[in-house]
Nucleic acid binder design. Structure first.
Lengths: 347, 347
DNA sequence: TTGAAAGCGCTAACAG
DNA sequence: CTGTTAGCGCTTTCAA
């Protein structure tokens, strides 16, 4: 029993009470929420507590109050660099708001995701779902138990935060159009992906507006390997411009193309999505429709905290965050046709 | 009071007890630790519980037992891609062992790190410190309260897991030696870094063994920008080979060199450490002394769990994990001198 | 094996 | 503002 831990027995509220010569509840009050009482007694108690090294036990506090001070983030696949920056944002915002972040990885398994959610739910005050693979109904179920925010996916009746793919995609198409490209191949992501569907539709719409042809290659796993493997199919399309479902796929594709002797951007222009870590130092640096990754994380968490604090979730439209086109070395004006030329560095 | 959550009131042990017509303690037993009782009653209880959607409340369980099922990982800087793969390993191993991971970021601040540790300690069964910036004494303090494992740093009397920098460095020096390099410039990391000191000493030792000169440039912040900024100092050294404190620094350095018109590896060979995400697709792909990142995470966590389960920490030597030299495009045989030549792609 | 009872550390009514 | 008194949901003796 008691507070485990070899040797380091942490003092309790009772120890402090005894040392300070007051009742336990008084000690409790000296550490309680609103503005922390500031009588002399309270001051003295805090002094005594500090001396004894007392720290209020979050577990014990959580039992009567339900306030665990913890928020769970469940990710479809923690492996995806897309999350790196998002996690940072969430963590920072959580710390800022006084919450501790619980992290769980579903490894792309709906089964594991459900288990993680079920297991974590009773321990947390809020739930953040990153690119969840669960059914909408399952997500709504969870949202009924605890305040929930979904990241990067829209779910009816559940608050969500997503990048504004439609307008981002439009910027990419416009950019390619200006460079002279009149046909675009979309290298699709995973079939089940909500974002993939959205990006594809946005691309079609935007292309239509710019009088550009679109074709689609895929689905592909959204990984470097998936991109490399897609190179062959892309080449069969004889396109001059490619938009890939995400940066990982785009970077992999560029490698695949390089291996096939095709040069980016001289022969084919490539655009990715998200602006993940590394997309600026891959070769060539990738032009990409940047997701505001950090902001995405921060916003999602803040939105969640607002709900925890009691606001009824405004479950109307998802919160949309603007995407920005970051132009780098992987896009260039269209050439009439592939042709072999003396190789020069892209400079 | 009670279990917060709009609508979704979770059933308690009492609800199950009533529904099953048994005493609460009996229900508790049906869900308790060792091999989960298997009488008929227990079976029936579990059935009833399942039907009611009962889940044992980890918080409530933790209070009397101290078993929270949580492990905290505090990182000096979650921003560093060095951790990406480590976090994955830790998360996976934690899930495997039935623990939930708590993540906190210290943002390189000793102050924040202490606070995070203090705050998390009472809520977790074990503590994982990633490249801690705290004083040894503070770490030992924490280790006295809860089982603790330190990652990537050695601390007397506290179990730790580190990559075997000495032998890894030797491999790098040997590689450069074989390529004809007889002098190496070390681009140092942050001054306070334990790993930096170790790598520098290892490099000196290895260089001595291979009859190679070493010089040192720095300290530098271990970032892309830091690397780019170090390019100038490196060029003043007129070296043919550089070993950088880590990959981030190395990649940044390569960009800085490229901007100065120096080509890697034709003019200067560059070696990094760690093999982080991106070091294979930067340009040129980086030769690096690879840390077994994932394994590092997995090992650290397993080691921690072993301690939690009761083994006395064998605080002798740190657990050393082998590093491997990954040879890629950033190292090449030494040329006699820089010279301007027709530019060709590295192939 | 089961039921009864006490208690983990803290909070939240109540009175005083 | 302070002390008193019940619990939060679960585990764990102790008898039966």
């Amino acid at each position: 029993m008691g507070r485990g831990g070899r040797g380091g027995e942490l003092p309790t509220i009772y120890d402090v009470a005894r040392a300070a010569g007051v009742a336990p509840s008084t000690v409790s009050r000296a550490f309680s929420r609103p503005g922390r009482v500031k009588s002399e007694t309270a001051e003295k108690i805090r002094a005594v507590a500090a001396e004894l090294g007392y720290r209020t036990n979050p577990i014990a506090r959580a039992l009567p109050t339900g306030r665990t001070g913890m928020i769970a983030m469940v990710l479809s696949d923690i492996t995806n660099p897309f999350y790196f920056e998002i996690i940072r944002g969430v963590e920072a915002a959580a710390a800022e708001a006084g919450y501790t972040l619980l992290l769980a990885d579903a490894q792309e398994s709906v089964q594991l995701e459900r288990e993680a959610v079920d297991r974590l739910l009773p321990a947390v005050e809020g739930l953040l779902l990153g690119t969840s693979r669960m059914a909408d109904s399952a997500i709504r179920m969870a949202a009924k138990q605890r305040p929930t925010v979904v990241l990067n996916r829209g779910v009816a009746d559940v608050p969500s935060v997503v990048p504004d793919n439609a307008s981002g995609t439009r910027k990419a198409v416009e950019h390619l159009h200006v460079l002279g490209h009149r046909s675009i191949t979309y290298v699709a992501g995973p079939e089940a992906s909500w974002a993939d569907g959205l990006r594809w539709r946005s691309l079609r719409d935007a292309a239509h507006a710019f009088d550009t042809k679109v074709r689609r290659v895929g689905p592909n796993p959204p990984t470097l390997a998936g991109g490399a493997a897609a190179a062959k199919a892309v080449l069969e399309q004889q396109t001059s411009a490619v938009v890939a479902y995400n940066d990982l796929l785009a970077i992999g594709l560029m490698r695949g193309l390089a291996d096939a002797g095709i040069r980016v951007p001289q022969h084919i222009s490539v655009v990715g999505y998200d602006n993940i870590f590394g997309s600026d130092f891959c070769s060539p640096p990738l032009t990409t429709v940047a997701s505001p990754l950090r902001v995405l994380g921060v916003s999602a968490l803040q939105y969640l905290v607002v709900q925890i604090k009691g606001s009824r979730p405004h479950t109307g439209e998802p919160i949309m965050l603007p995407m920005q086109l970051v132009v780098r070395g992987s896009t260039a004006p269209r050439r009439v046709a592939y042709r072999s030329r003396k190789r020069t560095s892209p400079a």
